[in-house]
Amino acid sequence: MSGITYVRGDATAPQGKGVKIIAHVCNDLGGWGKGFVLAISRRWPEPEAAFRRWHRERARNDFALGAAQFVQVGPYVWVANMVGQRGIRTGRSTGVPVRYEAIDAALGLLADKAEELGASVHMPRIGCGLAGGKWSKVEPLITERLTARGISVTVYDFEA
């Protein structure tokens, strides 16, 4: 039993009461233009602007694989930009961009923030879309880092 709740729906419209953090995986190139980030940007401009600024000023901050940035987008809603992908897939790519160790580290930061805020965590199947990861490798990281600490996690499978 993973302790993760699975629902059909939109992770940018998290269900439930209280403070919620929407978590997703970003790349380490500062790119924001495909996948789940587009759904985030359609709803709120702040996470993209913060991510791009974080990347642009990376020489003076913690931007790197495994880092996480938390952006408040409403009174009870935050977005976690988690750097868990090395580069992006291209036509010449060999292998996948996902970096499980980076997702694991970012999930640890996410757990700390969720505890600080008393928040639940909401996400798509992070690292398994454009990053090319396998849910069978990501799910145990979520269980270990979040649900084992008593943090409520909901994973959304989107239906267009």
Rank of each mutant, 00 (worst) to 15 (best):
E48C: 12
L117Y: 05
F36G: 00
K34W: 05
G33D: 05
R52M: 10
K20V: 03
I103G: 10
A39K: 12
N61R: 05
V79G: 04
Q85D: 04
K113S: 06
V25F: 06
E101H: 11
P14M: 07
P75T: 10
D62G: 03
G30Y: 06
D104L: 02
G16S: 02
A114W: 06
D112N: 11
V83E: 01
V73P: 02
A23H: 12
R99C: 14
E101M: 03
D28A: 08
L107K: 07
Q15G: 06
A49V: 11
S93P: 01
G74V: 05
A67T: 14
P47T: 07
G16C: 01
R58F: 04
A64Y: 00
E57A: 04
R53T: 10
G118I: 05
A64K: 13
E115H: 08
K34C: 03
V96L: 11
F63S: 01
I40Q: 04
P45C: 02
K34Y: 10
H55I: 00
G31K: 13
G91K: 15
A64Q: 14
I21F: 05
A102L: 08
L110V: 03
S93Y: 03
V25Y: 00
A23M: 13
T12G: 02
L65W: 08
R53H: 09
I40F: 07
R58G: 01
G108K: 01
D62I: 01
T12R: 01
F70I: 14
K17S: 14
F70S: 05
L110R: 07
L38D: 05
W78H: 12
A102C: 07
N27C: 11
S93E: 02
P75I: 01
G18W: 00
A105Q: 15
L117I: 09
R92V: 04
A68I: 13
A13W: 00
T12F: 04
N61I: 00
C26T: 14
R58S: 09
H55W: 13
N27V: 12
V37D: 11
G33W: 05
V79K: 11
A13E: 13
